[in-house]
Structure formats: C-alpha cells, structure tokens
Design a protein around this nucleic acid. Sequence first.
DNA 1: ATCCGAATTAACTCATATAATCACAATAAG
DNA 2: CTTATTGTGATTATATGAGTTAATTCGGAT
Lengths: 271, 271
Amino acid sequence: MNDLSNHEQAIELLQELGLKEYEAKAFVALTRLPTGTAKEISEISEVPRTRVYDAVRVLETKGLVEIQHANPQRFRAVSIDEAAETLRREYEERTDSLRATLRTIEPAAPSEETEVTHEVWSLSGDSAITSRTRQLVDESGDEVILVIGDESAYTPKLQERLQAAGDRDVSVVIGITDEPLRERVERELPGAKVFASGLEWLSSSAETGDETVIRRLLLVDRNTILVSSFHEDLGIGHDHEQAVFGRGFDNGLVAIVRRLMYTGLLSNGDA
Amino acid sequence: MNDLSNHEQAIELLQELGLKEYEAKAFVALTRLPTGTAKEISEISEVPRTRVYDAVRVLETKGLVEIQHANPQRFRAVSIDEAAETLRREYEERTDSLRATLRTIEPAAPSEETEVTHEVWSLSGDSAITSRTRQLVDESGDEVILVIGDESAYTPKLQERLQAAGDRDVSVVIGITDEPLRERVERELPGAKVFASGLEWLSSSAETGDETVIRRLLLVDRNTILVSSFHEDLGIGHDHEQAVFGRGFDNGLVAIVRRLMYTGLLSNGDA
DNA sequence: ATCCGAATTAACTCATATAATCACAATAAG
DNA sequence: CTTATTGTGATTATATGAGTTAATTCGGAT
C-alpha cells in the first residue's frame, strides 16, 4: 500500500498540473521503464492499450516524452528533473503573462461611493493572510498589538515590518505564550513590549473538543483587527488557514478583540 | 477589439491555471473594481448573477478574493501581484512534490533487452530539445558538428558544453550563416572550427512556400544526429520547436545528415 | 501475392463535470 | 404589508473525458 499509493500520488499531482488521467498514468508508467511500447505501458498502468497512443502524443507535445517511430513504436519519458522543470516553467510563464495582462485592464467601471466604516472581510490561505497582516502593520499609525499563537507565523519579514513600525514611533506590543519563542522575539525586537500572561483563553480548549488553533491575532490602532486560525487536522501546512479581518472602532468584532487584548495587557501590569 | 481581447486573454490564462470559466470571469471582473457585489460582477462579466456566489467562494478558498459578509455581500480581489504569486507558488509546490514522489517509484519492471542500433526519436518543445542537445554534446567522443540556424539556439550553457568537449580533445566544428553571430562564436570558442559556406540549402526556400526554419543541426561522432526546426508562424517563442534525434551509423537519416554536413565542410576547404 | 495477427487509428457510447436556467426562500427598504 | 433585491438550492443542458469497439494499417509467414 506504500509503493502503490506513491503511484497514485504522482498521478494525482500530474493531473493537478493539467494532465488528463490517461496522460498522467502513462507518464508514470513510462517513468518506471527505460523505454516502453504501448502494450507495456498499458500493462503496468491502467490505460487501455488503444488509448496509450493519444496520451503519449500529448505528452510528447508537452515535452515530457520522446517517441520512436518504429514498429512497434517505443516511448521514453524524459528525466524526472527535466519533466518537473518543464512543467514548472510552463506555469511560471503563465503567471507572468497573467500579471502583465491584468495590469493592462485594471481600469474599472465607476460605481457609487461605498463609504464603509464597518468592514468585515474573510480570507483564507497562508499566503493571502500573511500578506494582509504585513499590510496592516505597515499602515499602522500609533499602535500594533500582535498575539502570535504559532511559531511559524513569526517570519523574518514580519519582524522587519514590526521593527519599521517601531522605528516610526508606533508602539509595538506582542503577546506570546510559548516561552522559547517569547525570548527570541524579545531579543530580536528590543523596541517592542512582549507579554505572556493573560492569554490563557487563547489555548485551544481541549474540553470543548476544539481543535482550532489561533495562529495570529492583530489589533492595529484599536481600530482594525485580524484573527487567523487553522484546524489541527491534516498534518502540516497552514493552507487551511482562515482569517477574519475587520475595521472600524465601533465594529463589534473589533471591540471584543480590543477588550481581550487589553485584558491580556492589563493582567501583565502594562497598558 | 483590444481591451476586450485582453480580458479574454486574462480569462483564458486563468483557466489554464486551473480556474473554471465562471471563476476566471468573476476574478477578472473583480480586478476592475475596488470592490464589487454579485450584481456588479454579473453585469460586467458574463457570469449569471446566481452563480457569482459559488465562483467567488472558490476564489476565496484559493486566496484570490476576500469576502465581506454584509448585505449585500461585497467581494474584493487581492492585488494582481499577490494573485500571480499565490498561483505561482501553488504550482511550484506541486512540481516539487512531483519530483520527490517520482523519485521514490522510479524502480521499474524488468523488460527484455532492447539493443537498438537504429533509433529515431521525435521530441518537441524548446526545453526538451535544448536538454537533449546538451546531453549529446556531453556524450561526444571525438567529433561534434553543429549548425546553428538561429541565434537564440546559441546559449551560454551550450557554449560551455562545447568548450568542455573541445577540452577533452573532441573536434568541435560549427556552421553558422549569420555573419555577426559567426564572429561572436569564433571569438568565444577559439578551439572550434567555424565555417559558413556550403550551407545554402539551409535557408528556408521561399520558393516552396516553406516557412520552416532549421534551428539546430547536430552530428555527434558521425553516429548521432539531432535536427530541430520551428515554423515562422505565431510570433516569438520556440515552443513549437520540433526535433528528430537519431542514432546509428547506418541509420539512413544519420547518413543523409552526415553527407550534408561534410559537404558543407568540404566546400569550405576543410575536413 | 495472400493471409494472419499484432499495432495503430478512428469512431462511438457512457459517465461525469460544468455551464446555464429556474424556482424559491430570506432580507431589507419603502 | 408589500415589493424589490439578494442569496440558496435544485434542475436541465452541454461539453469533456473515460472506456469500449470496430476498422485500418503494417509486417511477417505461408
């Protein structure tokens, strides 16, 4: 169940990379052979022999397979690194084009003004959330309060932004329960106040069977918050990370978080 | 037909990057608005209003859109760079996993020996062909004859490999019709013989309406050849590049190329 | 030359996924 | 309370891909 599941995994990956099922299966089969005929491929993959030809021809046009026109035809997969590199480049080119193309059309149709003091947005994915976090820190005017619930959320880039905020006289306050991380942050961000107590409510309450981990909690200028969390289910990867990001002093969500944050601070003897 | 075709281009790109039609259209629409409701999106894209919700929800889980849960719901696209970066990373991770996974399964089923003296393989795509070219140069034992039909085929890496071949006493002969390129190669590869005449047959014969351009022509040890060509159709990009690669001294194809190459050489007073 | 079997191509059927439409429930505004 | 708008769910149609079968080609043996 191990080697097999690796095959399946490879096949799935290839499909996610845009190949059809037969193409993916045929490619994996070819990867296991120095060279193969349609028959051989059909035998070790689950591709009907008569369809191996289509599949392989497509693979050839994608630069993943070479074809020997003989009788019977023989096929050969390019090396693993070559294949991966070919696919990677293909997508890199696409994302680059996308960037360029989107830039040319950004101008939008005008719509009425939407003056909102109360905003609550939800977003997901580590990347999007990290990016929004940075932006909020950069925009801060006089105070940033950040609770870091997971070591991986404290990146060098974030440290840099926090440092910069501190340098322009924004008060930076950081809450961390994890002891070793706390010490590290204290060392790396001398200008910031780091506190630990008063955050008991943060830890995932095992009593309630709650597997949700709060990863970051940010309050900027008492006005804007960002809360992100993920479930402790599937292994590593903060892909599943979900976040809510809200604006407006009188926003209920913001008010609650403000309360919690200041409670934590107070119990620490600060604020 | 310009701005419109840009939209369409962006939509197509997004679909190639794995989004569904509605998702792609909705995203492009959102890109043009600072913020948008389902109705607005539906109006400027061609997505039925009732389907905007699904599409946007998917986009949100992919980290491309943020959702404001209000009434009416408002949606906002992340910045262009963020979107492109998010997608790029996604595919990078996949190609990396693929590489790793394929490595674990390479061991193949044993098949009978296939000792072939006559091989002819076809392959396509600049990347695959470039890679095979390098490999052949690296494997050369005593002679490399290379005709470069297009400046872009002469890369620093190739130069390096040719240099290395020369250093291990392989005779390196290079044919180039393009005058400026010829001089450059002579300068950069002092150990190689560079010739120009006798290659008239190479130029695409406009008489026959033949738009095919020979990009590279390689003969290694009088035994192995590689011929690559592309059509002068769609703008730039050697994506369409097609190649044939053959082995075996008595291989007909190899023989023909050998004849051509030596003719070129002879008329130059060498060989 | 003719026949036979394997190799290859092409065509068709079926299942699934996605696009497109519709009907209805929830909500807010008048 | 009424009505227009927003959002959800179910339904139909269409396109795409998987799976199958038949027809063609090709090489070798009779």
